[in-house]
């Protein structure tokens, strides 16, 4: 049929130490806003981003663990079924970088080798860029698919980073489910989306 599109839902975990900017990163990526005109909506917080990828309509659900970092085990309850992950750290706070391997290990011990990207956030506060060689070595050592220096505040490379991860998600999905890729099975239940059009759409689908 003409114009037939596939639909995929991916669940992406966004983890990292408290205060490294996870929530603003998600806001910037999904709503293109950094803390302005943002309406606090308690009741919907995993942000949904809809992206067209070749002939596939992809919905990315970003899961924010903000506020739960101190609960050593709690965040992991929600790891189940995630397709990808972002480990965020704050380039101005060494402590948050030191914690990266721990977060990565958490993901690895709970999930089977999901694509994970390292996000060096708040790069607008940095005078010099991070050393590429060191970072690449670090990524290889800890099994990240790549790293991005971003600024949620200035909207620097936030989109690029998302696209990069998405590319890997789709690739891996196709590898794992070569035959299944055409069906529109839902993996994430979407009864209320941050975008009203999405919400309406989901409702039609599930009703």
């Amino acid at each position: 049929m003409e114009g037939e599109t596939e639909e995929r839902d991916y669940k992406v975990l966004v983890v990292g130490e408290g205060g490294c900017g996870k929530t603003s990163y998600i806001n910037q990526y999904v709503n293109h806003i950094f803390s302005k005109a943002y309406k606090a909506t308690v009741g919907v917080d995993f942000a949904l981003k809809q992206v067209q990828w070749e002939n596939t309509r992809v919905r990315l659900a970003l899961w924010d663990i903000a506020g739960q970092e101190r609960f050593n085990h709690m965040t992991r309850v929600y790891y189940k079924g995630a397709h990808g992950a972002m480990v965020v750290f704050d380039v101005t706070k060494d402590k948050t970088f030191q914690a990266v391997p721990r977060w990565k290990k958490d993901i690895d011990s709970n999930l089977d080798n999901i694509p994970t990207v390292l996000v060096a956030n708040k790069c607008d506060l940095l005078d010099n860029p991070l050393d590429t060689e060191t970072m690449e070595k670090f990524c290889a050592q800890h099994g990240f698919i790549g790293w991005y220096e971003t600024s949620a505040k200035e909207n620097i490379r936030v989109e690029d980073c998302g696209t990069f991860l998405l590319e890997h998600l789709v690739k891996r999905d196709r590898e794992l489910n070569p035959g299944k890729y055409t069906n529109t099975e839902k993996t994430v239940s979407l009864t209320q989306a941050s975008d009203p059009r999405l919400a309406a759409k989901t409702c039609n689908n599930s009703c």
Binding site: S35, K36, K39, A40, D45, D64, G67
Partner: peptide, 30 residues
Amino acid sequence: IPVILGDIIHNEEVPLRNEAGKINYSRARV
């Protein structure tokens, strides 16, 4: 408590003042 802390972190994302310089009062309410 973790749910409350999550809500408060989201709330802190709302800037104190909007672009016109007025105080975002919804923040105080949450």
